[in-house]
């Protein structure tokens, strides 16, 4: 599926660009994308290192275990395949909480640690597990209490009330999160029956 989408982006883009005489732009874009990626990774990986460092303290001091056990009753329902008190629950909960405060950049390292931890209990290392998919559906629906970037952008453009989209965003993101989780659960159950 990703292979297909990726190929579509590139093939459709280049063919259309060539037809519309836009290949100069394409030329720069193709060559520049490695630079753009490097800049993005350079921006991200120090943050990842910072938070995996802090999280390692939480892990060694058993704080993470405590947190995992505390959230297990809630998250256990969403992730029935994760063993009770497994450390991945702690990472997942941290990722969700930090995302809720609109700190997407700080949440990513916790998400990556959660994926690594889920991979350890994954039976087939090249295939996504059900828990991984549920976790990523939660992430892609972007459940946020305060969309900080949008608010600051609205401030910049002179909104009389930059935060008045908080309520609408919250309603929309809640609906999409609930929908995502329901669809995820239905599909997971159907797949399990087929096997």
């Amino acid at each position: 599926m990703v292979n297909f989408i990726w190929a579509f982006f590139i093939i459709a883009g280049i063919i259309y660009g060539v037809i519309t005489n836009n290949y100069e732009v394409l030329n720069t874009e193709i060559l520049e994308s490695s630079k753009t990626t490097l800049e993005m990774v350079l921006k991200m990986f120090p943050l990842v290192a910072l938070w995996t460092g802090i999280m390692n303290i939480a892990k060694e001091s058993k704080l993470l275990d405590k947190f995992s056990k505390a959230v297990a009753p809630i998250l256990g329902k969403l992730f029935p395949e994760i063993p009770k008190g497994h450390e991945s629950l702690g990472y997942i909960a941290s990722n969700i909480v930090i995302n809720m405060f609109g700190l997407g950049n700080a949440a990513t390292p916790f998400g990556l640690k959660a994926m690594k931890s889920l991979q350890e209990i994954n039976k087939d290392k090249t295939t996504a597990s059900r828990s991984m998919i549920t976790f990523l559906v939660l992430n892609t629906t972007g459940f946020t209490l305060i969309p900080t970037t949008v608010i600051s952008l609205r401030m910049m453009h002179g909104s009389a009330n930059p935060t008045d989209i908080v309520i609408t965003s919250l309603i929309a993101t809640t609906l999409s999160t609930v929908a995502g989780l329901i669809i995820d659960r239905i599909v997971a159950k159907k797949r399990a029956c087929k096997k």
């Binding site: 989408i5 990726w6 982006f9 590139i10 459709a12 883009g13 280049i14 259309y16 660009g17 519309t20 836009n22 732009v25 394409l26 874009e29 193709i30 520049e32 994308s33 490695s34 753009t36 990626t37 993005m40």
Partner: peptide, 12 residues
Amino acid sequence: ILGVNILIKSNV
């Protein structure tokens, strides 16, 4: 990023 940039910058 390569795929997305080509898609967006080509105006397709």
